[in-house]
């Protein structure tokens, strides 16, 4: 188990390095840097001005070196100007003596995530704050999605082919076929529209960032939960239906155990192994949903930050966002693997 864990960890780190390098490479292509220079300076910069701006900000070095500096494996760049010395690890322009005292390495490994060019603040603090808001959203999504999906799946799977099964399965298919931007629009139209709708909820979740109430937070939570729910419910149904045909269930039934007890005490535990993995693997997809829903409901969380960073080519923020999302994806994959082995003793890692 220990060796398995270590190997997985190694692959994880390698994956994370590759992915961040790809993001780094794509964001540091020259047309992107040119766009960055023009949004930071002014839009009528000449080509020479763009190049001198980029040189001053340290963007003109070869990409692998810049990546090493961002990672904190190579010493940060410094540049001597007539006014003094600037550099990656130096704030503003300082004298050579102060520059000599400054830190040599400042990258992700040193906990230095850089500065966002859009928000003009520290990337680490932006990500921390936005991630907190998204965590709140995700928590309620999980609270709503997981139990309802499991209940739907178990109810549908315990009597395969019955009318309940048909109805619930249709609902699951319908919910997997509805992406967030469709269900969000329909839900807003039905529940929040000021002209014809029921006006039960609010169509925007901006207020929910400070204090979330049922009225302003339910629609975004429901929108994300619906899309994931169908898939988990279908998995649970398949797994439950398979367990219900097992020998030991038949034995229990022949012994005269009540149907209720068979489902709750015998079938349920074994039927929930497969959905567990599925729930963990849903995280990357939920991340997608988060981006769409936060844009749709104007909730300024992690997904909203991703859109802002990507559309403005805010390199350091975008890298920070991708580091976090890649880690979330990889850690959930690891947890799902370990959980699967732990829940199902028939499978061994070696």
């Amino acid at each position: 188990m220990g060796l398995f864990f270590l190997r997985r960890l190694g692959v994880m780190i390698l994956t994370a390095l590759c992915l961040t390098f790809i993001v780094f490479f794509l964001t540091n292509l020259y047309p992107n840097l040119e766009k960055l220079a023009k949004t930071q300076g002014n839009f009528r910069m000449s080509d020479e001005q763009v190049e001198s701006y980029l040189r001053k900000e340290g963007y003109m070095q070869p990409t692998p070196i810049k990546y090493g500096q961002w990672l904190g494996a190579l010493p940060g760049w410094t540049l001597e100007t007539p006014d003094g010395v600037t550099g990656r690890c130096i704030d503003g322009i300082v004298t050579p003596a102060q520059a000599a005292d400054a830190r040599q390495f400042c990258g992700i490994l040193q906990g230095d995530w850089g500065v966002s060019t859009v928000f003009k603040t520290d990337v680490a603090s932006i990500i921390g704050e936005r991630l907190g808001l998204t965590a709140k959203l995700m928590f309620w999504v999980m609270v709503l999605m997981v139990p309802s999906a499991l209940i739907i799946g178990v109810l549908a799977g315990m009597r395969e082919g019955s009318r309940t099964d048909r109805t619930l399965s249709t609902f699951s298919i319908l919910s997997t076929a509805t992406p967030e931007y469709v269900s969000g629009v329909i839900l807003i139209a039905v529940f929040a529209s000021s002209s014809v709708g029921l006006k039960w909820f609010k169509g925007t979740a901006t207020g929910a960032m400070k204090d979330a109430t049922f009225e302003n937070f339910f629609l975004p939570v429901l929108t994300i939960a619906l899309y994931g729910m169908g898939y988990i419910a279908r998995m649970t149904r398949a797994s439950m239906a398979e367990v219900m045909t097992a020998q030991y269930i038949r034995t229990a039934r022949l012994k005269g155990v009540s149907f209720r007890n068979i489902v709750v005490k015998h079938a349920l535990r074994n039927a929930l192994i497969a959905p567990f993995t599925v729930i963990m693997l849903q995280f990357p997809w939920l991340l997608n949903g988060v981006v769409i829903v936060e844009t749709l409901f104007n909730y300024k969380g992690f997904g909203w930050t991703l859109v802002q960073a990507a559309s403005n080519n805010d390199i350091e923020l975008l890298l920070g966002v991708s580091v976090v999302s890649v880690i979330v994806v990889l850690v959930t994959q690891l947890i799902s693997d370990i959980g699967y082995v732990w829940l199902n003793p028939r499978i061994s890692v070696s």
Binding site: L29, E34, N288, V291, L306, A310, L318, S325, V326
Partner: peptide, 18 residues
């Protein structure tokens, strides 16, 4: 590729600059 959030990949690939 699967570990990449799809939307991030789209934002990186589908821009006029790229």
């Amino acid at each position: 590729i699967l570990a990449f959030p799809v939307i991030l990949l789209f934002y990186l690939l589908v821009t006029p600059e790229i």
